[in-house]
Computed example of a mutant assay.
Amino acid sequence: MKTRYRIAGAVAALLLAGAAQAHRQWMLPSATTLSGTDAWVTVDAAVSNDLFYFEHVPMRTDGIAVTQPDGSAGRIENAATGKFRSTFDVHLTQPGTYRIANVSTGLMGSYMLNGKRERLPRGTTQATLATALPAGATDVQTAEMANRNEIFVTLGAPTTTIFKPTGQGIEMAPVTHPNDLVSGEAATFQFLLDGKPAAGLKVTIIPGGIRYRDTLGQMDLTADQDGKIAVTWPQPGLYWMNATVGGVREGGPMGEGGAPAAPAGPP
Rank of each mutant, 00 (worst) to 15 (best):
Thr138Gly: 09
Pro260Gln: 11
Gly251Ala: 07
Thr3His: 12
Leu192Met: 02
Gly200Phe: 07
Val11Gln: 10
Leu181Val: 14
Ala20Arg: 11
Ala187Arg: 10
Leu92Met: 05
Glu150Lys: 09
Gly265Phe: 14
His177Val: 02
Thr160Leu: 02
Val153Glu: 02
Thr124Arg: 14
Gln218Ile: 10
Arg213Asp: 02
Val248Glu: 06
Ala19Ser: 11
Arg85Gln: 10
Ala31Lys: 10
Met27Gly: 02
Pro178Val: 05
Thr61Met: 06
Asn179Val: 00
Arg24Gln: 13
Asn242Arg: 12
Thr67Tyr: 07
Lys116Asn: 06
Gly237His: 05
Ser72Pro: 03
Gln68Val: 07
Gly167Lys: 04
Thr97Ile: 00
Val90Cys: 03
Asn49Cys: 10
Gly217Asp: 05
Val43Lys: 07
Arg99Ser: 11
Ala223Ser: 07
Pro69Thr: 06
Phe52Trp: 15
Glu55His: 15
Asp50Asn: 15
Ala223Ile: 03
Gly18Leu: 06
Glu250Trp: 14
Arg213Ala: 00
Glu250Tyr: 12
Ala259Phe: 13
Thr87Val: 14
Ala132Ser: 14
Phe163Asn: 03
Gly247Tyr: 07
Arg213Thr: 03
Thr154Gly: 02
Trp40Pro: 00
Leu129Ile: 05
Thr188Ile: 04
Gly109Glu: 06
Met108Asp: 13
Gly63Tyr: 10
Ala243Cys: 10
Thr215Leu: 13
Pro29Glu: 11
Val182Ser: 03
Leu92Trp: 08
Gln190Val: 01
Ala137Glu: 03
Ala31Gln: 08
Trp26Glu: 03
Phe189Pro: 00
Val231Ala: 10
Leu155Cys: 01
Leu193Tyr: 15
